[in-house]
């Protein structure tokens, strides 16, 4: 930095910002890409089956894979509509 720089506004620490953004996006993408390829199709077919019996929203069916120790868990959650 020279004495002339004193009169210029200092840029923020952008490296730190880059790191924070990357830590978040990389964690998110690792989760998404490590999921098995059949997941979207499984979700679609499950939705069709459930809809035969209950009229649910497409968003009401959540299918996730997460690891717990050495085990992989397939989580299925279906939100049923309110009884109106």
């Amino acid at each position: 930095m020279s004495i002339f720089d004193l009169f210029r506004p200092r840029p923020k620490n952008t490296a730190k910002l880059a790191k924070e953004r990357l830590l978040i996006i990389v964690a998110q993408e690792r989760g998404a890409h490590s999921a098995p390829d059949f997941l979207p199709l499984l979700k679609r077919e499950l939705l069709e089956v459930i809809r035969k019996y209950v009229n649910v929203d497409p968003d009401a069916v959540q299918v996730n894979v997460r690891s717990d120790g050495d085990q992989e868990l397939l989580e299925l959650s279906v939100t049923l509509p309110d009884k109106a």
Binding site: K12, T14, A15, K16, A18, K19, L23, V26
Partner: peptide
């Protein structure tokens, strides 16, 4: 540039990846 905070450091990249 790393010292100035304009570029990620070796440790930063190692930590992220």
């Amino acid at each position: 540039r790393v010292e100035k905070g304009d570029m990620m450091s070796i440790a930063d990249v190692e930590e992220i990846l």
